[in-house]
């Protein structure tokens, strides 16, 4: 009979329409800004820099090695290495980035910077509410805007952050064990308290 197929199809739409009143699976619409789906843990948006402790300048894990700058496919990272050194998370004297900019209008969220970073210093954020009225400066994130605490990292990617912390702790233990007991002055405590002696932080006041 001509029209049978059409009727069959309409029965299907009717089933979906009335079904949406009873079955959650058929009603998938979310009233977006007011109502949001739970965030998926692995989600990623743009990179940020992790720091330990409470002071973002002292605790920053990044040592300005510029590997991510070189490996970034669209070349959206700009790093200028510092002239002086300061103790890093493991307690070693290290350089730090005097300038660390990411242009998120160019960044394509591929997370290759995260993969190549040997210091677990750069990780992917989940924030997507980044609209701004300035196309250039508004989307250029500097070191201070990029710095986020380790607690924040634990908040957004708990599983991954726990694994990173465990690896870092093991590395620190190894570094401590290697050191002759009383030969050198003890290294600054890695993450907990702010580092005692203040380092000159030239070019960092932003």
């Amino acid at each position: 009979m001509v029209g049978e197929g059409i009727l069959k199809g309409l029965a299907e739409t009717a089933r979906n329409f009335f079904g949406s009143y009873v079955s959650k699976e058929r009603l998938t619409t979310v009233q977006y800004p007011e109502q949001r789906l739970p965030r998926i843990e692995a989600a990623r948006s743009f990179p940020f820099l992790v720091y330990d402790g409470s002071d973002w300048q002292q605790g920053m894990r990044c040592v300005g090695c510029q590997i991510c700058e070189k490996e970034c496919p669209p070349k959206c990272i700009l790093i200028e290495k510092s002239k002086d050194k300061k103790p890093d998370a493991v307690g070693k004297q290290q350089f730090y980035p005097a300038v660390f900019d990411i242009d998120i209008s160019v960044c394509m969220s591929c997370q290759i910077c995260v993969e190549v970073c040997p210091f677990d210093a750069i990780k992917m954020d989940v924030d997507v509410d980044l609209p701004t009225d300035n196309r250039f400066a508004g989307l250029l994130l500097d070191k201070q805007q990029l710095a986020k605490s380790n607690e924040y990292y634990h908040g957004i990617h708990p599983t991954e952050a726990a694994a990173v912390d465990a690896a870092l702790a093991a590395e620190r233990a190894k570094a401590q064990a290697k050191k002759p007991a009383a030969a050198t002055p003890p290294a600054a405590p890695p993450s907990a308290a702010p580092v005692p002696e203040a380092q000159p932080v030239g070019g960092e006041s932003k």
């Binding site: 001509v2 029209g3 049978e4 197929g5």
Partner: peptide
């Protein structure tokens, strides 16, 4: 199955 019911036999589509 649902999708095939919906349109595969549809005369207009054919």
């Amino acid at each position: 199955d649902e999708y095939e019911n919906l349109l595969v036999g549809n005369e207009i589509l054919m």
